[in-house]
Design a protein around this nucleic acid. Structure first.
Lengths: 155, 155
DNA sequence: AGTGAAACTCTGGCACC
DNA sequence: GGTGCCAGAGTTTCACT
């Protein structure tokens, strides 16, 4: 489905999507028109979920970020868990949620305006729900790296 | 420095940067030329760090992701910690690193091709370093949400 | 896949409020 | 100040070879 050219293109645009087809042709040995064709296909076939602008830390660092590890109840019912996940999914403060192995079942990262907002949102999301056995919060002191990319080219 | 129009524009493009100035004018009550001017200024002044393409889970879910909580030594020296952070920063498998409060000092998310690659990379990053007191790994079973956006408009 | 022309978008000038 | 409008440059799109 994807050849090496496609992987090379995806590898480029996942790091910088601001380049033109002509500029991409400097990195990938294809003509600009072929690049454009492939990029259109990659988008249409859903290999690229979306293109986003990552904001400067000048904007994001001012906010309070909290890492919440959630342990679910031992026999949490399906409906309660679904409701919890739906709350997490619709909350604009929740940036990531991972289902993980180990003592805790979920990891969520919240980005809030200030501490009061976090406490309120955490209570709404977790405390009032019988599905959640307990949750533990660590606050983010600094973001040291943010590079949500995967190595595709040459693999 | 940033007025409500700028914040509205940033709020839009952090979620979808594929739209033209004319399309953005449907959401932000400005003319396309004013939109384009402001977007150019926002980029030039560094409010937008970069624009990236987020790849489909079809591509990223195949990989093994691991969440590593790292506890540093009680009196880890500056040089050792800097070397650790440099290794984390340059490793292509490391996607995020947060300095956090609580029992553990760092949280890192690794995305590896398979388990062998993870073990090898984790040893290289953490095990051989006296700066690291201990580290604990949880594996990601599922990514339930990924939306690294902050609410800007109307705040 | 590569080459061309048409359509579209962005960039620079200007007058206007 | 910044906004809106219009002409030129640049980019993407869609024929065809």
């Amino acid at each position: 489905m994807l050849d090496d050219f496609d992987l090379a293109l995806l590898d480029q645009v996942q790091r910088d999507d601001s380049r033109t087809a002509e500029q991409l042709a400097e990195s990938v040995p294809l003509s600009p028109s072929a690049i454009a064709r492939r990029m259109r296909r990659l988008r249409h076939e859903g290999w690229i979920a979306r293109t986003v602008a990552l904001l400067s830390p000048k904007l994001t660092d001012k906010r309070l970020r909290a890492l919440v590890l959630v342990q679910l109840g031992e026999h949490a019912d399906r409906a309660g868990k679904d409701a919890l996940l739906r709350r997490l999914h619709t909350s604009p403060e929740v940036q990531f949620v991972y289902e993980i192995s180990g003592t805790y079942d979920l990891l969520a990262l919240l980005s809030c305006e200030h501490m009061d907002a976090f406490v309120e949102e955490a209570e709404r999301l977790f405390a009032t729900d019988a599905t959640v056995r307990r949750y533990e919060t660590s606050f983010v002191k600094r973001e040291l790296k943010f590079a949500p990319f995967v190595r595709l080219s040459g693999s």
